[in-house]
Computed example of a mutant assay.
Amino acid sequence: MVSLCRVGTAQVPARCESVQVWLVDRPNRNARPDIVLREAADALAALRAEDKIAFIHCFEARSRTAAVAALYSARHRGVPLPQAWEDVRATLPGCAPQPFLRDAVERITG
């Protein structure tokens, strides 16, 4: 499980491997959002490369989850970024990534 928000120890089942990524869903609250997004997408790819079922989540699965999922698709699956965003919207119809996260994903995949 890749957590993009705070979780307590009681919220992570003992059988799950948990990767904690501290990504704040507000502009100017992350020192290096590009690095954090890249590391989150890379962690997801590493778990999948180990044939693990990987879950990614944040508080509402609207902004951070969508940004990391689109970045993962573009960076690690070779999906063109516009298609990656459409695929995320098809899976998470209520997604609404913060503009600063969308901009960071654009820069990273640039």
Rank of each mutant, 00 (worst) to 15 (best):
R62M: 01
V105I: 14
V19E: 08
Q83M: 08
W85F: 11
V24Q: 10
I35Q: 15
R32E: 12
Q20F: 06
C95T: 13
T65D: 01
W85I: 10
E86H: 09
T65V: 03
P27C: 12
H57E: 03
C5K: 01
G78M: 11
P97D: 08
A67Y: 07
L37F: 15
V79A: 03
A41I: 09
T91G: 05
A70K: 02
W22E: 13
R38V: 15
R48W: 01
D51C: 00
D87K: 02
P93W: 01
V24F: 06
I53R: 02
A90G: 11
V12L: 11
L71I: 03
F55A: 03
R107T: 06
V19S: 04
E17T: 04
S73Y: 04
E50V: 00
A10R: 09
T91L: 09
L44R: 13
A96E: 14
I108G: 10
E17F: 04
R102G: 09
R6S: 01
I108Q: 10
C58M: 07
A46D: 05
L81S: 02
E86G: 05
E17H: 09
T91R: 10
I108H: 12
V36P: 07
A41C: 13
S18I: 08
R6F: 01
L92E: 01
R26S: 12
A31D: 13
A46Q: 06
E17C: 03
P33H: 15
L101Y: 13
T91M: 08
P82A: 05
L47C: 11
A69I: 02
R6I: 00
C95M: 15
D34Y: 11
M1V: 02
A43S: 15
G94I: 05
T9P: 14
A46C: 03
R29P: 07
R15L: 00
A10S: 10
S3R: 11
L92G: 01
V12A: 14
A67C: 07
D34G: 13
F59T: 11
K52I: 00
A31R: 14
